[in-house]
Design a protein around this nucleic acid. Structure first.
Lengths: 229, 229
DNA sequence: TACTGAACATACCGACGGTATGGCCAATAG
DNA sequence: CTATTGGCCATACCGTCGGTATGTTCAGTA
């Protein structure tokens, strides 16, 4: 058998970009772990948590369950890593969008708009909104959100609220933030599911703007949240 | 062996209340089906969908899997029946609370308050809010909600909105309803999870009232949703 | 009285999450 | 340069669970 035909069976593998301060062995390890997470993210998004088998994941990553269970304690732990990754990316994109303007009101609109876009991404929808609470349990789900996306939304809400009423305490801000966060999540689902997503998204923006404007108007009139009792 | 000792091994069973127009056989059948649903509701609420095995359900109902698969096409179908039952009960309780007053604004407050209470019930939280979207899939989940609880919320929102702005179309009402529905669901979770649920519930009521008051104020000033563009 | 079909029970299968064990080889000490 | 160790991963296997195929009983009916 000629050498040339043999060499085709051993395709050249692109050398891993050498990361300083990391041995070759560690780089291989990190690579497989990264691949596992990426494949898991893809499959979880497409088929959901329950319908995605570990066999499918390790097959996609071209490893075995031994590798998976070396890097993660189980299926749920792998899901949590994927969850955090998706969350972090979303929070970061919102943060970036808000940094593009200085005006607080414009920042709020930009942030909410970006959140509305993010919440329509299949990955975020499936992994965070739809299956997150069920897979992680609401406790862990909330703990995770608290450290990323929700915090961003809370900052936005706080800015809008305090612009008019400086007496609102932290608990009240958190409550408003919860309401808006839940509202936007649900809205994202309905937008993504709508027959005409663009129109639906615009309706949501109108509605949210209307609500926020109402809040601002009340605040300008000196009406405090406390007065609602 | 004396008769008395034997009779203790055959405990008297309370006779089934005879339902007119239903043969005894049909009554037994309906009874096992009902029992299966009730046991399933209990176990699904306590342990969640994935952690509740069919063996546990049929053991609790004192039947076998043959009976279960005779009445339901599978685990998910059983879950859907439980889901619909819980949903229907919730919608009905909201409806009842609203009928106690005639004033639209008071009806809205009563309805929202009842919804906020319902959304704190462990059964509703676990089966509908937390695991509903993941187990049924968002499509079926929304279809079910559309036929019960969401419709009630939509009616409330419509009443409040149209009181001020008669030009809002149905799509816009539905959008507002989606926002409020999602907001209330998320709020219910945070309330139920809070260290002091009563305080948390009151904060939510304050916030919602503030939002609705803002909407009303805008409407009284003649500000239409359309003007937000 | 014979018979049919509804209402279950029983036994079993395949898929899947998880575990126990062993092998390979880069990194490091001597 | 050699021996040894431990991180990294493959292989084989187990228990559980959802689902199915088949058998059995018996109330209702002709």
């Amino acid at each position: 058998m000629p050498k040339s035909s043999v060499s085709k069976l051993v395709p050249k593998v692109p050398p891993l970009p050498s990361v300083p301060g990391m041995s070759r062995r560690q780089q291989f390890s990190a690579s497989t772990k990264k691949t596992l997470v990426e494949v898991a993210e893809k499959l979880f998004t497409e088929h959901g948590y329950a319908s995605t088998s570990l066999d499918a994941i390790v097959a996609g990553a071209e490893v075995t369950k031994g590798a998976l269970y070396h890097h993660f304690s189980g299926k749920q732990a792998l899901y949590e890593v994927v969850f955090e990754k998706v969350e972090a990316a979303t929070a970061q994109s919102i943060d970036a969008a808000m940094r593009e303007t200085k005006d607080p009101w414009e920042q709020a609109r930009a942030g909410l708009r970006t959140f509305l876009e993010a919440v329509q991404q299949p990955t975020y929808r499936r992994i965070v909104v739809q299956e997150g609470p069920a897979v992680l349990g609401y406790q862990r789900y909330r703990e995770q959100e608290e450290r990323s996306t929700f915090t961003v939304v809370e900052d936005i809400v706080a800015a809008v609220l305090r612009a008019g009423d400086r007496t609102v305490d932290g608990e009240m801000v958190a409550t408003f933030a919860r309401l808006f966060f839940g509202a936007m999540s649900a809205a994202g689902e309905s937008v993504a599911e709508a027959s005409n997503p663009e129109e639906a998204a615009e309706r949501v923006e109108l509605a949210v703007t209307y609500l926020l404007t109402g809040v601002q108007t009340l605040a300008q009139q000196g009406v405090k949240v406390e007065d609602m009792r």
